[in-house]
Design a protein around this nucleic acid. Structure first.
Lengths: 107, 107
DNA sequence: GAATATACCTCATCTGTCAATGTATATTCC
DNA sequence: GGAATATACATTGACAGATGAGGTATATTC
């Protein structure tokens, strides 16, 4: 991992939601996707991932169900809710604004 | 303030250093500058500012001296060190990378 | 049968942010 | 005269998100 967690902090939930907008997924897979998308520059720690899931579920942004795998380890799938889609739009908007602000400040 | 602190978290020190590269300054002024630069979209809380000063000094990124004001409240000035300039370059680099990564992830 | 990959989960700890609180000086305005 | 506001610095305790360390279980590869 090349970028510090304090910079990614605050984006965890948005990153997860972004993944779930494409399709329902489960923890392990989401993490793999993130690594792939960033060419291994960023990896969510498991504990971070699961605590974010808990927050997102509590907030009504995702719902969860168990996969029906007959082989291999069981998978807990997550699906984004309507609430979650709204939240995601908000996060994206916020990111665009934050980007501008930080760019201004780090000139 | 319109953008959440979790997103700015991790940029505080870089923002301060950026300010000190322009000129020596003091806490109150730095905060005012930040507000001005961001059109009041972002304001460092005082406690955040001062704890960042402490970290930066500890890390050798800034040094401090008292101003010689004869009127008004005393001012504690901060100056960036060579170490601090290097750190700032690192922060800027990191920000460029982080920006790309987050942009990829929030597509 | 040992190692590795897949897959889930929890707890204690760490770190940065911030509300609240305190001190002191100077200016403005009624 | 005095009340409000602006300037300026500083500390403390609480909070929240990130994470290292630990745990469980199944399947495959060598």
């Amino acid at each position: 991992m090349s970028i510090t967690s304090d910079i990614l902090r605050g984006h965890t939930e948005a990153i997860i939601l972004s993944n779930l907008i494409e399709q329902d997924s489960y923890g392990y897979q989401i993490n793999k996707d993130i690594m792939k998308k960033t060419n291994n520059a960023y990896e969510l720690k498991e504990a971070t991932l699961y605590s974010a899931f808990r927050r997102l579920e509590q907030a009504g942004c995702i719902r969860t169900y168990w996969g029906d795998e007959t082989v291999g380890a069981r998978r807990r799938y997550y699906a984004i809710t309507e609430e979650g889609r709204k939240a995601y739009q908000g996060y994206k908007q916020e990111w665009q604004e934050a980007k501008e602000i930080i760019d201004k400040l780090l000139k």
